[in-house]
């Protein structure tokens, strides 16, 4: 018994030490470094016009990418979870491809498409449309890397729900939209929310892919993560960490929402479990 306790205490301590060193310490370090020179320097770093522009660009990118990928996720989940069809596995694999491609390679794809010597580059240049090293490419690269998030959350959830409730709704005279709005979505709302949160976190935090296509024009094509990189490489650690702290806050909010969603959906699962 006492030996058991010893093992237990030792293993718990080891796990906590590992997590402390690898997760908690870095998280704390972001804020500590950001506030190293006091609140004044921190506030100055965030008041900087380039920082503000970076925040605006990041929000704008997410504002386009997240709703589009959410709609995609809903479409894909409806098709993949409620119907049987040939090629479904292939479709799911295609959906997951962005996860197995390096962010840098993801960015490269859009250089190949829209670069000066790319597939559409010359045509776009001739018509004076700027895609690469501008907002459109940043959005496209972000779309690419965040495609699977919502769909991946929804598909297993909607598959587990089955189709009986939807069939019941149809026999009661509901139309497709009514079935989706009144029956399907209320059942998966927490999973949907979680998918959207994750998608948003990645959209705002994406670095590698966006870095390739952004061109790093200060105040114009630098998202918040790119802004952090520039400041860090210019040996402005306080400013870099101040900007980073905004992203760390985003991460904390994401984690908190995730915990809330898990708690809520756990509650629903407990409530709907059939009594024996």
């Amino acid at each position: 018994m006492s030996r058991h306790r010893l093992v237990r205490v030792a293993l718990t301590a080891a796990a906590l030490a590992f997590l402390g060193l690898f997760l908690a310490l870095p998280l704390a370090a972001v804020f500590a470094k950001a506030l190293e020179r006091g609140a004044g320097a921190y506030a100055d770093a965030l008041r900087d016009p380039d920082a503000r522009a970076a925040v605006r660009l990041t929000l704008a990118t997410a504002a386009v990418a997240v709703p589009l990928n959410t709609l995609f996720g809903l479409c894909a989940a409806w098709a993949a979870a409620k119907f049987e069809f040939r090629g479904k596995r292939l479709l799911m694999t295609c959906m997951d491809l962005p996860f197995s491609v390096s962010p840098v390679v993801s960015g490269l794809l859009f250089v190949l498409l829209f670069g000066a010597r790319g597939l559409f580059g010359p045509y776009l240049a001739a018509h004076g449309v700027k895609v690469l090293y501008a907002f459109p490419a940043i959005v496209l690269a972000t779309l690419f890397v965040t495609v699977p998030f919502v769909a991946r959350e929804l598909i297993p959830l909607m598959e587990a729900q089955g189709t009986e409730e939807e069939e019941a709704a149809v026999t009661l005279g509901a139309s497709g939209w009514q079935t989706l709005w009144r029956v399907t979505l209320p059942n998966v709302k927490w999973g949907l929310l979680y998918g959207v949160i994750l998608c948003n976190a990645r959209a705002m935090g994406e670095f590698g892919a966006v870095s390739v296509v952004s061109g790093h024009i200060r105040g114009q094509t630098t998202t918040l993560p790119l802004h952090v990189e520039i400041l860090y490489n210019e040996y402005q650690p306080v400013a870099a960490f101040a900007a980073a702290s905004l992203l760390a806050l985003l991460a904390l909010v994401t984690l908190a929402l995730k915990a809330l969603v898990e708690w809520k959906s756990g509650e629903t699962a407990r409530a709907t479990r059939r009594p024996a």
């Binding site: 997760l23 972001v30 470094k33 976190a201 935090g205 670095f207 992203l247 995730k258």
Partner: peptide
């Protein structure tokens, strides 16, 4: 909840923090 931090924290932030 903290275990998911690497999923949620942008990689650039993780990068500069670990480097520091």
């Amino acid at each position: 909840a903290l275990v998911d931090l690497p999923f949620a924290l942008p990689t650039a932030v993780a990068g500069i923090t670990l480097a520091a």
